[in-house]
């Protein structure tokens, strides 16, 4: 047999790519711009600008990988978290430069907005791997005036022991929409459209109270189980006739799908946007989790194994 010329068989997209392309298409149709930012972030963009100040308990919500720089090496302490006894790492001392290029303190004047954004002021110059795609919100809002509609599909990192449902690196989708009158109802409408197009089923959404420092109100978003309750969703839920053995929702009829909320006015202010004039929503969803839910993949680590026995199924 001879090779290439006759080998017309197509290759395979990785399921994460498949998913991100589908998501990209859905949101492009809704008029959202697709953007990304750096994986190695500074503390200001990953935390402070998002209304997660240093010495605030909310910092514990994100287990962080820190990058070694010349000066922070020795200043590391470990704390045992009282809840789960999980060690937490915090670089204590500020460090100015190290292996990474020097993060200079600078004052950029944004003439459009008549403000100077103190990009690195109060910044303890520690470099880290971004723990969410949210710093891209900040980077985008620093450069662009509202109205804003973006999604950010991208890789993120968490200092977390890995198992079938946890990875130290995975993908997240961030959404941000800022206009004069974007509300929680808009959020609900956009998410429903997204999830229905994505799962190719009729889906309902419910919000539950939650907390993320960069949004207020902050919400947890549940979607109706696209497998179990798809036949007649509302009836199934009302009568409790969901499948108790459903591998996806365990018979609850709802799946926890993402965090969301209305962008905190402080976050807008930090980017030079007047919260008296502009408002909007942000959401963040784990793409790996969507992939696993949709295709029934049991172990997140398989996505990064380079194993074509998985990939070539798609």
């Amino acid at each position: 047999m001879t090779e290439h010329s006759e080998n017309k068989e197509k290759g395979h997209y990785h399921p994460l790519t498949l998913t991100m392309l589908k998501i990209g298409k859905i949101f492009d149709d809704l008029g959202f711009e697709i953007v990304d930012g750096p994986h190695i972030e500074d503390e200001y963009h990953n935390f402070d600008a998002l209304n997660i100040p240093a010495n605030h308990p909310a910092r514990d919500m994100w287990d962080t990988f820190w990058i070694k720089t010349r000066t922070n090496n020795a200043d590391l302490t470990q704390t045992k978290n009282a809840d789960n006894n999980k060690p937490q790492i915090h670089p204590v001392k500020s460090c100015e430069a190290g292996i990474l290029p020097e993060a200079k303190l600078f004052n950029r004047v944004n003439t459009d907005k008549n403000i100077s954004i103190n990009l690195r002021k109060n910044l303890r110059e520690s470099a880290l791997l971004r723990t969410h795609t949210s710093p891209v919100q900040i980077r985008y809002m620093e450069k662009n005036k509202p109205p804003i509609k973006i999604i950010v599909p991208g890789k993120i990192f968490r200092y977390e022991a890995t198992d079938a449902t946890h990875e130290a690196q995975f993908y997240q989708l961030e959404g941000l929409m800022i206009t004069k009158n974007t509300t929680l109802a808009t959020l609900k409408g956009v998410l429903k459209e997204f999830l229905e197009k994505f799962f190719e089923e009729k889906i309902d959404i419910r919000f539950r109270p939650s907390y993320f420092p960069f949004v207020e109100p902050g919400l947890e978003v549940d979607a109706t189980c696209f497998r179990c309750a798809k036949e007649n969703l509302s009836t199934a839920l009302k009568t409790g006739k969901t499948n108790p053995r459903c591998s996806i929702c365990k018979g609850i009829g709802w799946i926890e799908i993402m965090g969301a909320g209305m962008v905190h006015p402080k976050v807008l202010e930090n980017c030079g946007i007047n919260p008296q004039e502009w408002q909007g929503f942000a959401f963040g969803v784990g793409i790996d989790r969507l992939v696993m839910l949709k295709y029934g993949i049991p172990d997140i680590r398989m996505l990064y194994s380079g194993d074509l026995r998985l990939i070539n199924q798609f």
Binding site: D28, G31, F32, M177, T183, A185, R206
Partner: peptide, 15 residues
Amino acid sequence: YENISYDLPQKGSDA
């Protein structure tokens, strides 16, 4: 929150 309605903004791929 369940009493909040769905409000889908105008579609349009002008991004």
